[in-house]
């Protein structure tokens, strides 16, 4: 009879492990988010940046811009310039143009990514159209600003970085609220 009790207790404990590991699977989602932001994995950038920095006039960094449509997205989407040269610490603005050529109102979400990924943590966006969704009426065209600061502590071997946006059509999945601030 002792054995039977201990079997029951053992099984209960094993079931607890099972439940804990199921929860751990879901816990991987925030863990991954934190790791990505801490180490700039995948070029993930953080949310809006509040600080200001002194400008480092000595140094110049090239920032390139890329705009890509995700599969099935029909908007016209491009930066106004392919590239700018900035001083670390200085606040710079770039405009992206979006145009909805279709006959329907559509909602879009832009997802940013910085390459090389180790530079992502040093690229601060003080304002970005990617923090919200864009709704464009048929034929409408807008200019969308991103304002950013390249951190003074950007590793010295990075002279050149790329800010890439992928634009997703999220009309079908309303309400299209991003879970993570970007």
């Amino acid at each position: 009879m002792n054995e039977s009790l201990s079997t029951r207790r053992l099984v209960t404990r094993l079931l607890l492990v099972v439940v804990a590991m199921f929860a751990f699977g879901f816990a991987l989602v925030p863990i991954y988010e934190v790791m990505c932001q801490a180490f700039g994995i995948n070029g993930k950038t953080a949310g809006a940046y509040g600080g200001t920095q002194a400008v480092d006039e000595q140094r110049q960094v090239r920032v390139q811009f890329l705009a890509t449509n995700a599969a099935g997205m029909s908007w016209e989407f491009r930066p106004q310039a392919d590239e700018v040269t900035v001083h670390p610490g200085a606040s710079t603005q770039m405009l992206f143009v979006a145009h909805n050529p279709t006959g329907q109102p559509m909602t879009a979400q832009a997802i940013p990514s910085v390459a090389p990924s180790k530079a992502a943590a040093y690229f601060h966006k003080t304002e970005c159209f990617c923090f919200t969704q864009q709704v464009l009426q048929p034929g409408e065209r807008i200019e969308m600003p991103v304002r950013f600061i390249v951190d003074r502590d950007l590793p010295a071997d990075v002279q050149h970085l790329t800010l890439a946006y992928t634009l997703f059509d999220i009309t079908a999945r309303k309400p299209p609220v991003a879970q993570v601030s970007r």
């Binding site: 991987l28 995700a70 979400q109 299209p176």
Partner: peptide
């Protein structure tokens, strides 16, 4: 889904 703030690499 990247469109909604997730990540396929996850």
């Amino acid at each position: 889904s990247a469109a909604g703030g997730g990540d396929p690499v996850l």
